[in-house]
């Protein structure tokens, strides 16, 4: 089964290569791999965010991602940062405070806070 599938794949690849060459589109393997590598950078951002949530909590992590990622993409300046902070806060208020979506049980930062504040943060943020 694998041999016919591989041959069919090879045939498709040759056709795609000719089609792209005909329309003078970037055809090199390096070009495609560069695009994939660029996407991997944002996968790393996503993973870093999910790793941060158990440490800093939902509120701080979302604020960090919501400002740092737009900054990385070139949306800088006070106006953009204001929009990003507001949007991140809204997301936290809707999903964590409103819909009570459960984050990890233990959050390192919240454990460092005084008892009352720690419980409040764990319940609402």
């Amino acid at each position: 089964m694998l041999v016919p599938a591989a041959l069919w794949n090879l045939y498709g690849s040759v056709r795609a290569y000719r089609w792209r060459a005909r329309f003078q589109l970037p055809n090199g393997v390096a070009h495609e791999l560069t695009q994939w590598a660029r996407a991997l950078e944002f996968v790393a951002w996503f993973i870093a965010y999910t790793m941060l949530v158990p440490v800093l909590g939902y509120l701080v992590s979302t604020l960090l991602l919501g400002t740092a990622l737009p900054w990385r993409l070139g949306y800088r300046g006070a106006r953009w940062m204001g929009i990003c902070v507001t949007a991140s806060l809204a997301i936290v208020l809707v999903f964590r405070t409103g819909l009570q979506i459960k984050p990890p049980v233990n959050i390192w930062l919240y454990d460092q806070l005084p008892q009352g504040l720690s419980t409040f943060m764990k319940v609402w943020f």
Binding site: A39, I47, T50, P54
Partner: peptide, 28 residues
């Protein structure tokens, strides 16, 4: 445009990792 909240499914970090993996597959 609100990001999705994968922690809500099984409250599991691994879910997020696999979702990222499937995301990369979908991107390709």
């Amino acid at each position: 445009y609100v990001p999705n909240r994968l922690f809500s499914i099984r409250n599991a970090f691994t879910d997020c990792m696999f979702a990222a993996g499937f995301g990369f597959l979908g991107y390709i």
